[in-house]
Nucleic acid binder design. Structure first.
Lengths: 181, 181
DNA sequence: ACCTGAACACCGTTCAAGT
DNA sequence: ACCTGAACACCGTTCAAGT
């Protein structure tokens, strides 16, 4: 990175790359500034706060979500959202921490609402995907530290079974309510 | 609080009270130490790290979950878990951050697994409750700061509709699979 | 057994001033 | 428009030493 001039976009890009490399606990304004060969205070010309920077990063993460062809079923959309959240280290947690601020993140719900009739169900499914993905990434981290209580923990095997069970619940629900109407 | 002697239990109790009063971002080891009228380093005689302290706090939060009478239905159990997570400020986030370490938190899944046949479905339901509760508490905080993008945001009204939609999905699933067997 | 004192290596943020 | 320099008010953690 040249010591030259930056803007919101380039800072966001490098923040996302740094997140993926070091994880959320080590993504500090000071470290990001060092990576940009700039003083920490320079970042506050582009973003009002770290929160605002993380919101921009969250929007980037969610931009990976593929557009839904209307009329397809729920499962591939849900998988697409999960994969976007898991594509970068601690991605789910970043999205979760900025989701309440509503700065972005409508993209995921919009995708789900086009394939699920009921909006409340679509939001609930998104909350399941977010919770699940966050726990998956946290377990990845705990495992890399070696902080597991029980031995012989098969990593992603049963995790995917839990995810599929969640998807099944919501697809079963929408097919039942479809029959009702 | 007297300046006298402490143990793990008393420190955990006051940490939980402090969490409820100031929230997770302001729950620091230094502030907790000040509340206990003790030097920050004193806390490290009782807990190896802040993580370990938070795990003890998470266990406390989950201890509020009522025992399930076997044979009752899913909804009241799910509500009981949600209420335990929402009983203290940022409680859901604390549980979420220590859940991966498996230090406690089996209590919630155990309760759900006694009323739901499939273990993967029980875990998925717990992940939905955790994700949902975390977002609810984050929105509470964002609202108290006044950092909402859109105006006139009805607070807990539609939030509960989303929760009920999630519960309905999992109860519908288990009743369908019951009929199948 | 439980705590103090002092230090180490960090944080996010503000703000005058530079170019 | 974009950044520097310096400061403010904090962090978690370690470790020798005290009682």
């Amino acid at each position: 990175m040249a010591p030259g001039r930056h803007d919101r976009d380039s800072v966001t890009t490098l923040a996302l790359a740094l997140l993926d490399r070091v994880g959320l606990p080590d993504l500090s304004m000071r470290r990001l500034a060092a990576e940009l060969e700039v003083q920490p205070s320079a970042l506050y010309w582009h973003f009002a706060s770290k929160q605002e920077l993380l919101a921009a990063v969250a929007d980037r993460i969610l931009s990976r979500i593929p557009e839904p062809d209307p009329g397809t079923d729920v499962a591939p959309i849900a998988v697409g959202i999960r994969d976007a959240l898991l594509a970068y280290r601690d991605g789910a947690e970043v999205v979760m921490s900025t989701y309440a601020l509503r700065l972005g993140a409508r993209r995921a719900q919009d995708a789900l609402q086009t394939v699920i009739g009921d909006d409340a169900s679509a939001d609930a499914l998104f909350e399941f995907i977010l919770g699940h993905s966050t726990l998956v990434q946290q377990r990845m981290h705990a495992q890399s530290i070696g902080a597991t209580t029980d031995a012989a923990d098969d990593p992603t095997a049963e995790l995917d079974a839990v995810f599929r069970a969640g998807i099944r619940a919501f697809t079963t629900l929408s097919s039942v309510t479809d029959q009702r109407s």
